[in-house]
Design a binder for these strands. Structure first.
Lengths: 203, 203
DNA sequence: AAATTATTCTAACTAACGTTAGACAATTAT
DNA sequence: ATAATTGTCTAACGTTAGTTAGAATAATTT
């Protein structure tokens, strides 16, 4: 008797909300923010455009939630993995675990994460401002992780950690453009990236 | 007496064409394909929407040219650099020179290259198909470069060259999202990336 | 000077957009 | 059963979109 399935009509409101977000994320990812119409989102969620406004008060509210869900899921997964390995892991192990958490979540929720990566620069400015707060938090998490790795020693002194973070997140997110988890193993992908990131191409 | 400045009215046609492309590239980059109107492009190029159709026969034709110019410029710069260093350079030197050529050109023509990276997935399918041909050519160039590096020996055997190429181009292109050549030195950026790519983060 | 050509503008077309108000139907609570 | 609530639909609003045809203007050629 939780108040989850409580009130509603054909579908519970929370279910409908979710399917609107799923449809929106998928379409935003593929076509961009402006190209996606509320009529299109509504159709994909099996309803009419006007009905969407019962669940969201504007298109901007929908896209903001899509953008933030994209990052938040990855953030939570990486943070959890980091907390598990932080106590006893080496720098290399920490990096490996966190990169795998990022890649797995990124590719598992690719509609949301890809929407974030692709259309962040295309949404109205106020949405961009709110979404940036959540982005910053994730960047800070990685700075903490790299700091904690550095404190364990063994890192290449010639590498600037801020540059490394930017390159790392950039290269991981770019996998969204070509890697399909249905046709390839994410763990193999992660191992391939980690070999380059930790040891480099030469020698 | 070349036929360059030959015929025309207020501006030579080729100049107007160029300023339409420049305006379009800039706006596509910032707002996405669908969000940019021909009226907006026309205004930025100091003309009215109808006049644009004297130079291009559709919005699709404009975006296709923007997309292809973005890659072609980078392709030419990297190919040129490669040809200069291929004869006597080591693998590390080849990589360094080509990465710098890519980054310099990418960031120098960032409206075109960024438009390409950001909106390639958002344009109509026929445009995407034509643009992909030019993309493939550039990917092939890098495969050749990496092959030629491998033939010189000294590469880390654990690194898959196809994965390396995907990670390399992905990470370099991602710099468009955060690096501003007006506030940072591109050569320093390239050196930072190269240190990670060649030697890795550890040890 | 007249005729031609090159470029731009105006004005309009149809279609689609985000959003809103209010009628309507289905569920739950009384 | 009735009333209240929850969710959806219809229909319309003003705006803007890509595109086109043809008039208008400026430069070039004859």
């Amino acid at each position: 008797m939780t108040s989850e399935q409580a009130t509603g009509k054909r579908r519970a409101a929370s279910e409908t909300r979710q399917s609107i977000l799923d449809a929106a994320a998928h379409m935003f990812r593929e076509a961009g923010y402006a190209a996606v119409s509320l009529r299109g989102i509504a159709e994909a969620a099996h309803m009419k455009a006007g009905s969407v406004y019962y669940h969201f008060k504007s298109k901007e509210e929908i896209v903001l939630e899509v953008l933030n869900l994209g990052i938040e899921r990855v953030h939570e997964a990486v943070q959890l993995s980091y907390e598990e390995v932080a106590a006893n892991g080496s720098a290399t192990q920490i990096l490996a675990v966190c990169v795998k958490a990022h890649l797995n979540t990124l590719l598992a929720h690719s509609d949301y994460t890809s929407a974030n990566v692709r259309i962040h620069g295309q949404v109205p400015e106020n949405v961009q401002l709110e979404a940036r707060v959540v982005r910053r938090k994730y960047e800070n998490l990685w700075d903490d992780i790299l700091q904690s790795m550095a404190s364990r020693g063994g890192l290449n002194d010639a590498v600037d950690l801020k540059v490394f973070r930017l390159m790392l997140i950039g290269s991981l997110n770019a996998t969204l453009e070509w890697f399909d988890p249905a046709h390839g193993d994410v763990t193999e992908l992660a191992d391939g990236y980690l070999e380059i990131l930790t040891n480099g191409l030469m020698e």
